[in-house]
Simulated scan of single mutants.
Amino acid sequence: MSEREFLPCRIAVLTVSDTRTEADDQSGNTLVERLGAAGHVLADRAILPDDRAAVAARLREWCADTAIDVVISTGGTGLTGRDVSVEAHRDVYEKEIDAFATMFTLVSMQKIGTSAVQSRACGGVAGGTYLFALPGSPSACRDAWDEILVHQLDYRHRPCNFVEIMPRLDEHLRRK
């Protein structure tokens, strides 16, 4: 194990759904439970309908909030007409983390085989904040958290992780 101390991230969870409520948001609950068990802080939580402009606006709001380091959304990553989370995320991203989608697909293939091709999970960075869009199933949220995010959001993870470069994510915005 690393000599480094754990540094908790402040994570906001967004459920994108026309039908979910706080009472039945299993995917959001899965993420909240897992991030808490890992030692991170739930910075905010919301449920929004499948509306591209509304989702992008909330992502921008959270990116502008210095009390939020990471945003994880669940839902709206599929192929149907109402699935707009990926487009909303990409409206906000300054840089996309292409390998996140690839890693998620590899993890998903181990669980659901070729059905993994139907997911459009993605990740990116905006305003010094990490953003990840996950499918709306609790199992997909577990897979993304347990196999990728729990490690990359842990400062002790070697050889590298998202947390150690967090202070440099917005360096291009600083005055020279």
Rank of each mutant, 00 (worst) to 15 (best):
Arg4Tyr: 03
Phe6Val: 08
Arg10Met: 04
Ala12Leu: 02
Ala12Glu: 07
Val13Ile: 15
Val13Lys: 01
Val13Asn: 06
Val16Gln: 00
Asp18Gln: 09
Thr19Val: 01
Glu22Arg: 15
Ala23Asn: 14
Ala23Asp: 15
Asp24His: 14
Asp24Met: 12
Asp24Arg: 12
Leu31Val: 14
Val32Met: 13
Arg34Trp: 04
Leu35Asp: 00
Leu35Arg: 00
Ala37Asn: 11
His40Asn: 07
His40Glu: 07
Ala43Gln: 03
Arg45Lys: 15
Ile47Met: 01
Ile47Val: 12
Ile47Ser: 01
Pro49His: 01
Asp50Val: 01
Arg52Val: 09
Ala54Gln: 15
Ala54Asp: 12
Val55Ser: 09
Ala56Pro: 12
Ala56Val: 03
Arg60Lys: 13
Trp62Thr: 05
Cys63Met: 03
Ala64Gly: 15
Thr66Gln: 03
Ala67Asp: 14
Ala67Gln: 12
Val70Thr: 08
Val70Gln: 06
Ile72Gln: 00
Ile72Glu: 00
Thr74Leu: 01
Gly75Gln: 05
Thr77Pro: 10
Gly78Pro: 10
Thr80Asp: 10
Gly81Tyr: 04
Val86Thr: 14
Ala88His: 12
His89Arg: 07
Arg90Ile: 09
Arg90Pro: 09
Arg90Ser: 15
Glu94Ser: 14
Lys95Met: 14
Glu96Gly: 12
Glu96Thr: 13
Ala99Gln: 14
Ala101Asp: 11
Leu106Gln: 14
Leu106Cys: 13
Ser108Asp: 11
Ile112Gly: 10
Gly113Asn: 07
Ser115Asp: 10
Ala116Gln: 07
Gln118Asp: 03
Gln118Val: 07
Arg120Lys: 13
Arg120Tyr: 08
Ala121Asn: 08
Ala121Ser: 13
Cys122Gly: 12
Cys122Met: 07
Gly124Ser: 09
Val125Arg: 08
Gly127Leu: 02
Gly127His: 10
Gly128Gln: 10
Thr129Ser: 11
Leu131Ala: 08
Ala133Met: 06
Leu134Phe: 01
Pro135Gln: 12
Pro135His: 11
Gly136Pro: 02
Ser137Gly: 07
Pro138Gly: 13
Ser139Cys: 01
Ala140Cys: 12
Arg142Gln: 15
Trp145Asn: 03
Asp146Phe: 03
Asp146Val: 05
Glu147Tyr: 02
Leu149His: 06
His151Phe: 11
Leu153Cys: 06
Tyr155Arg: 14
Arg156His: 05
His157Lys: 02
Arg158Leu: 08
Pro159Asn: 05
Cys160Thr: 07
Cys160Arg: 07
Cys160Met: 03
Glu164Ala: 08
Met166Phe: 04
Arg168Ala: 11
Asp170Met: 04
Asp170Arg: 12
Glu171Tyr: 08
Glu171Lys: 09
Arg174Glu: 13
Arg174Gly: 13
